[in-house]
Design a protein around this nucleic acid. Structure first.
Lengths: 195, 195
DNA sequence: GTATTGTCAGTCAGTACTGACAGTCTATTT
DNA sequence: AAATAGACTGTCAGTACTGACTGACAATAC
């Protein structure tokens, strides 16, 4: 990343985001963050006042916050495979965009109450959308009419697991890259839900 | 938990395990741990020498280390639903037994290299077993003969996701309790893999 | 009597955070 | 072109506190 053209505030936020995601809030010093940003520690405090406020600012600045409801009511085409593909790709897009924030929210959960909830708000919306989607698809007779919420949950859990597994560069399970995994997950559910 | 009959060492290990899982290694002080164990800080150092060694001792003591290969070659009955049920239940059993250690390995990854790998060794074995199981099942003509490793991976990811979601008392997605989730996951794969 | 633990006082290093002062860069004014 | 002002940054010395860790001694328990 080339941060040379960013303002000092931005440089500090980015450095903080990366380091805290890696080592945890308590595992990183303000001096380290400032140095990584190519600035002096003093500048850090002049900008943010305290380490805690720096973290909060980083969160506010970098967590992805976009409405999805409309997006979906427009894009869904009521073809199971195509729509599942859209949902899972959107899911991974959101999660990857929030990658660092999610890492932080997992590590600093006790110190930063409410963080986890915020990083999971958008994925949660997707779960909701998918559940309603399954219900409607069942009404249309395009999938079996049982357990729509359970199936939506299972689908999301599968992708949540894959994302988590990949979080620190997929080295703990056999590394299967994302794209074929998504394709396969869609096929599994398409076969399972076919009436 | 009633720890009153445990030796001092055990009390300290348990207290350390719980507190570090909750607040992270750097988020907890030796005094806190000792107090939680009902002992003095001095006793902690007399037993373990340093904070770091305490953590390592806790890991060695409490991470689940059992061979599974034999277990499975004995228990598999080559009925898809029944065997998937066994695999997923075994998986969640292992993961829950290692719950705290897994939390720690996620939070302290940078500080404790190799931890994550160790906590994931046994689940990895399961993935291996499941892959081979699918291959054999395909040879027997009991499931479709495509992508056995991808399907095994997908199955494990689904349960990994569910476990992770549940790690801090399932409050970030709609809470669906474990047992029905397992049942449903098995049904999905049974339908998807049926020839 | 031996082993284990508590108390207490204290050391030492690290770390968040501050104040005073000086330097630099940019834009505006003259 | 030169001067000036204002915003931003670096340096450095220092404060205040925390937290890992120690040593000496006393108390308790088996």
């Amino acid at each position: 990343m080339d941060n040379s053209k960013l303002g000092s505030g931005e440089k500090l936020l980015l450095a903080a985001l990366n380091l805290i995601a890696e080592k945890g809030y308590n595992g990183v010093t303000t001096l380290e963050i400032a140095t990584a940003a190519g600035l002096s520690e003093k500048t850090l405090f002049r900008h943010f006042g305290s380490k805690q406020k720096l973290l909060e600012a980083a969160f506010d600045r970098y967590h992805y916050a976009e409405e999805m409801k409309k997006l979906f009511s427009e894009k869904l085409v009521w073809d199971l495979e195509e729509d599942l593909l859209l949902v899972s790709k959107t899911y991974h897009e959101i999660m990857n965009r929030n990658r660092k924030m999610i890492q932080i929210s997992f590590k600093e959960e006790s110190q930063l109450p409410g963080f986890r909830e915020r990083t999971h708000r958008h994925p949660l919306q997707l779960l909701d959308i998918l559940t309603n989607y399954f219900i409607t698809m069942a009404e249309k007779g395009k999938i079996i009419p049982v357990d729509p919420e359970a199936h939506a949950f299972a689908f999301m859990m599968m992708h949540f697991g894959a994302f988590m597994n990949d979080l620190d560069s997929h080295k703990y399970y056999a590394s299967i890259s994302l794209e074929p995994f998504i394709q396969n997950s869609v096929k599994i559910f398409a076969r399972a839900l076919k009436p």
